[in-house]
Simulated scan of single mutants.
Amino acid sequence: MTDSIFLDFGDMERLTGTKVKRLQIEHLSKIKILFQLDRNGAPLVLKESLYSLSKLHHQPKRKQQSIIYSSLNA
C-alpha cells in the first residue's frame, strides 16, 4: 500500500471541520490553502503544500536593526 500525495477524506474533514464539499471549499479558500477539485467536485489538497505552509509559519522572524545602529557599531 502506498501513501497518497493528497489528503484523504478524514484528513480533509479534520482540516476543514466539515464533511460537506461546498463548506470544505469555502473554508480552504478562507484560510488560503491551494486546492484543486476532482471530477466529483471534492477539493484535493497536496500534503506537501501543507508541509511548506507549516515551515513558512514556524520560521523565527529576525529583528531588523536600524541603519543608524549598525553604522555606530562599524
Rank of each mutant, 00 (worst) to 15 (best):
S71M: 04
L37F: 09
V20P: 05
S54F: 15
L56W: 10
K55M: 05
Y51K: 05
V45G: 04
L53E: 14
R14M: 07
H27W: 00
R62D: 11
Q24R: 10
K30I: 00
R62N: 08
D11H: 13
L50G: 01
H57R: 11
K61C: 09
S49D: 15
S52Y: 14
F35G: 02
S29Y: 07
Q24V: 00
E13T: 15
L28Q: 05
K55T: 01
R22L: 09
H27G: 00
I31V: 14
N40S: 12
K47W: 07
S70I: 05
N40E: 14
K55E: 15
S66Q: 08
L46V: 04
A74E: 09
N73A: 10
S70Y: 06
E13R: 15
G41F: 02
K32I: 07
T2R: 03
I33M: 03
I25V: 15
R62Y: 13
I67F: 12
R14G: 00
K63Q: 11
T18H: 07
D3V: 03
G10A: 10
F6M: 07
E13Y: 09
Q64I: 14
S4W: 02
H58N: 15
L37G: 10
A42C: 14
L15D: 01
L15V: 02
K30W: 07
F35D: 03
R39V: 01
F35L: 04
K61Y: 12
A74P: 06
K55D: 10
D8W: 02
Q64E: 15
R22Q: 13
H57P: 00
Y51T: 03
K30H: 12
L34H: 07
H57I: 15
G17T: 05
I68Q: 14
F9I: 03
G17D: 04
F9W: 11
A74Q: 09
Y69F: 07
S52C: 02
L23D: 15
D8Q: 03
L23S: 11
L56N: 13
K30E: 14
S29H: 06
I68L: 14
S29G: 06
K19W: 08
H58E: 15
S49H: 15
Y51L: 14
S29T: 13
T2D: 12
Q24S: 07
G10W: 12
K47L: 10
G17H: 09
K32E: 13
T16K: 00
I68N: 05
S71C: 02
L72P: 05
G10E: 12
L34W: 00
L34S: 06
F6K: 01
E26P: 00
N40W: 06
K19H: 01
L50P: 05
Q64A: 14
V45T: 02
L46Y: 14
G10P: 10
N40C: 01
S52W: 12
S52P: 00
L28K: 01
V20S: 08
Q64T: 12
P60K: 05
L15R: 02
V20G: 00
D11W: 10
F9Q: 03
I67Y: 09
F35C: 05
P60I: 06
V20Q: 14
G17E: 06
